[in-house]
């Protein structure tokens, strides 16, 4: 297993860890943090597999995709945080209320 595969597996691991935390944690800020970790994991998978390119230069297209992804992630995070604060000011709690099961 070379370095690229090691980092790719790490990315997968981060995604799985984030997924678990997303399911288990109830606090909205923790969920948003979990999404960021999952995103980092997905980007790491993409970038690590780009490292498989031979010679000195890694494949730049996945790098561009990751940069785009990082910017999209910060935009979504910023919006999610503002929404979370509104939810707290309306319901008094930074949790989603229990949904009546349908």
């Amino acid at each position: 297993m070379n370095a690229a595969m090691l980092y790719a597996l790490t990315g997968a691991g981060l995604f799985a860890l984030g997924l678990y935390a997303l399911a288990v944690q109830a606090h909205l800020l923790r969920k948003i943090i979990a999404f960021n970790v999952m995103g980092s994991g997905a980007f790491l998978v993409l970038g690590a597999l780009a490292h498989r390119a031979p010679d000195q230069v890694a494949d730049p297209v996945p790098h561009a995709m990751v940069i785009t992804g990082i910017v999209v992630a910060v935009s979504a995070t910023a919006f999610a945080l503002v929404l979370m604060l509104r939810v707290q000011s309306e319901t008094g709690q930074p949790h989603l209320p229990e949904q009546p099961s349908d």
Partner: peptide, 14 residues
Amino acid sequence: ALTGAMRYLLVSLL
């Protein structure tokens, strides 16, 4: 609306 939107956001991001 806000809780509905938040839930939608979590699902959408996932």
